[in-house]
Structures are given as structure tokens and as C-alpha cells.
């Protein structure tokens, strides 16, 4: 065994990363762009008074569930947000929310078209599946290293790492949704002379919508799970509080911040699920 030389995988990847680093201009542009989105979200959240933020969340939940009143959920949201405010985590919460929303948004914008492409092309699906498996199973910490190299430290590399880790469900579920559209509906659309775009926007996407939204919901939850990891490279927010608590062996502080993440996760999950709820009556 010892006679077989070790494959220099790590040095290959180092070389590749070094080579990528020569595209500094490109990475700077990406950093500025994502930084812009982050700052935009953060600016809005900083501007919103706490009571108005709470009102928006509760109002949103109420309106989305107007047919099936969810008073327990609304009660939970009020109590949960008051808890976060009470613990002094408000700004951290909005920073985490910014990270999650930015990475979900990017995952959506990149993932949905890729998913559609996969849904329409068998070849692209075959190529992409192992890549998606790779993205999801590679320990998320590993993404941090090149992310820092290219995007520095702070929120931006955190968002990048979250996007890579969280995007696969959106792509997969979009692909699945497109492929699940019954064959006779596709035939019907074709037989009336729909172009590919008409077929996509009038038939495939509307019918794939709920599957697609389930993917978006999953992506959002995954990017939320990245917040603690992202805090290792300087992303601010609730994750940072947890990370510090780990460093100081502070169980109380860790749980207090962890609970805030749980509350945020539940609110995000319930709201995106409510958006997803179909308005078409079942027979």
C-alpha cells in the first residue's frame, strides 16, 4: 500500500483556487453586488420600528391564512418576537434575517432557471444530479475556506456559502415539479400550438408552483442552519451569539440565542408555507 503515491488532491485544489483568485475583478463585483443587497435589507430592517415589524409579520400571517384563522400561530409570533426583543437580540435577529433572505433570494433567482432547464433536458439533469449531491453533502465548513479567499470576511462570504449549501433543494424541486406535470396536459398545451415559453409560463410553472415553493421553503430552512457556521467567518447575527457562547462555554447564552433562531425559523417556515397553500379547491 505504501508504495502507491498519495494523489495530490489538496494541492490540485489549491492550484485551482489560486487560479480562480486571478479573477479578482469579477469577485469584487460579486462582493459589491451581494453587499448591496445585504445593505438594502439591513437598511430597511433598521428603519422599521419594532412594533411596525411585528405588525407586518402578524398582518402578513393573518392575511395569508384569512380562510383558516391561525390564532395560535399569530399568538406564537407575537410572544416569540417579544422574547427576541426582550433578550436584546433584535438587531442580531434582523441581521440573521438579512442573511437568510439574501441567500434564499439568490438561491431562488439562480436555482429556479437551473431547475427548469433540468426539467426540460434529460442531459442537463444527468450532468447536474451528482453536482447537486456534491453541493449538499460536502461539509458546509469547507465552503468557508475559498469563500474567505475570494470574498473576504463578513456577511458576503457567509451568503455565498449559504447559497451553495441551500440552493440544491430549490433546483431539485423545480426540476421535479416540471417533470410531474401530467403528460396529457403537456400534449394539450402542444396540440393548441403553444410555444415553449407559453407552455412553461401558462402550464408547467403554475402546476409546478407548489412543489417549487416547497423547495424554496427547504432552501430557506437550510440557509438558516448555516447562520452559526457563517458566523465563523464574521457574519453577524444570532449565529454569532451562539458561536461566542460555544467559545465561552456559556450554555445559558447559547440556548437563549438558539431559541431566537428557532423562533425565526418557525415564523419563516409558516409564512412561506402559507404562501404556498393552493387556492385551487380540491374536489
Amino acid at each position: 500500500m505504501n508504495n502507491i503515491p498519495q494523489l495530490p488532491v489538496s494541492s490540485w485544489i489549491d492550484k485551482f483556487v489560486d487560479w480562480l483568485a486571478s479573477f479578482e475583478g469579477f469577485f469584487n463585483a460579486v462582493t459589491n453586488f451581494i453587499g448591496g443587497i445585504i445593505n438594502g435589507f439591513q437598511w430597511i430592517f433598521d428603519l422599521l420600528p419594532i412594533w411596525l415589524f411585528m405588525l407586518l409579520v402578524v398582518g402578513c400571517t393573518y392575511w395569508l391564512n384569512r380562510k383558516t384563522k391561525h390564532w395560535t400561530l399569530i399568538g406564537f409570533e407575537i410572544v416569540g418576537l417579544l422574547y427576541i426583543w426582550n433578550q436584546g437580540f433584535w438587531r442580531d435577529m434582523t441581521q440573521t434575517l438579512t442573511l437568510v433572505l439574501t441567500s434564499s433570494l439568490i438561491a431562488l433567482v439562480i436555482g429556479v432557471p437551473l431547475g427548469i432547464w433540468m426539467g426540460k433536458s434529460k442531459v442537463f439533469e444527468t450532468i447536474n444530479k451528482p453536482i447537486l449531491d456534491f453541493m449538499q453533502t460536502m461539509p458546509a465548513f469547507v465552503y468557508l475556506i475559498p469563500a474567505v479567499a475570494f470574498f473576504g470576511i463578513g456577511m458576503v462570504p457567509g451568503v455565498i456559502a449559504s447559497v451553495i449549501f441551500a440552493m440544491p433543494p430549490t433546483i431539485r424541486m423545480t426540476n421535479l415539479g416540471i417533470r410531474q406535470v401530467p403528460a396529457d396536459l403537456i400534449e394539450a398545451a402542444d396540440s393548441y400550438g403553444s410555444t415553449s415559453w407559453q407552455k412553461l409560463f401558462k402550464v408547467q410553472l403554475p402546476l409546478a408552483k407548489s412543489t417549487l415553493m416547497a423547495g424554496v421553503n427547504q432552501s430557506m430552512m437550510l440557509s438558516l442552519s448555516m447562520v452559526v457556521i457563517a458566523s465563523m467567518i464574521g457574519a453577524m447575527g444570532l449565529g454569532n451569539k451562539v458561536y461566542f457562547a460555544v467559545g465561552r462555554n456559556d450554555a445559558g447564552g447559547g440556548f437563549a440565542a438558539g431559541l431566537a433562531i428557532v423562533i425565526l425559523a418557525i415564523i419563516l417556515d409558516r409564512i412561506t408555507q402559507a404562501i404556498n397553500r393552493s387556492k385551487i379547491p380540491k374536489s
Binding site: 396529457d184 394539450a188 396540440s191 401558462k202 402546476l207
Partner: peptide
């Protein structure tokens, strides 16, 4: 072909193939 499908013939399907949305 799209023109012919749009103007010359229409199809009715066994399982109706109505768009549920």
C-alpha cells in the same frame, strides 16, 4: 407547425386534459 396547430386543428383528450389551475 405552430400555425397549423393553432388554426387548423384542435384536439380533445381521453382524460380531458383540462388545466387544473
Amino acid at each position: 407547425l405552430l400555425d397549423v396547430r393553432r388554426n387548423k386543428m384542435s384536439m380533445v383528450f381521453q382524460n380531458f386534459a383540462l388545466f387544473p389551475n
